[in-house]
Amino acid sequence: MGLNSDFELVRKYLDGDEQAFNEIVHRFREKIYWHARRMLGNHLDADEVTQEVIIVLYKKLKTFNFNSSLYTWIYRITSNLSINYLNKKKIKKFFSFDDTPQTDLTENADMVKNLEDKEKLEKVEKALQSLPVKQREVFILRHFEGFSYKEISEMTGKKIGTLKANYFHALNKILETVEDE
């Protein structure tokens, strides 16, 4: 399941093969979900963004230029849509449209069946949510997804030095949060 087969799928989809799109979604859906979930900190928001990413892929795959891997392209979209989603929530809060109380993360973690796993995941989410969004994004992309600074730089358009500084502060904060528990 290398880079070429991803490209092949995109080409098939661009040639009108809908099944190829299904295969792309099947291949990346779990990665998209987990990236969104780590960025947003709960299932409901992650679900919303995951669906949005699939919709954007469907609409925008025709603009994919084959210069980067499909994998990094999808992560870039997921990252940006997650940040947009957070900002949109902020705007709604700003204009008092979002009166919904903060949802309990325990309730939202219902896509994870095992109780022990849920508790562990909640701790991770709590630690991640303690980070500012930019630091969170860099930390997630590097620590959980294993991207290099160069790849993250290509995805986010930020300088490698800035990313390293963000990662350093994120590490420090995350460890403080974990140690406080």
């Binding site: 299904n22 979604v25 099947h26 994870v112 095992n114 796993d117 562990k120 995941l121 991770v124 959980f144």
Partner: peptide, 15 residues
């Protein structure tokens, strides 16, 4: 701890 197994029905219904 960050990536436990997800409900497969949920994943299947995403698309």
């Amino acid at each position: 701890d960050s990536e436990p197994e997800l409900d497969q029905t949920y994943l299947a219904n995403l698309l």
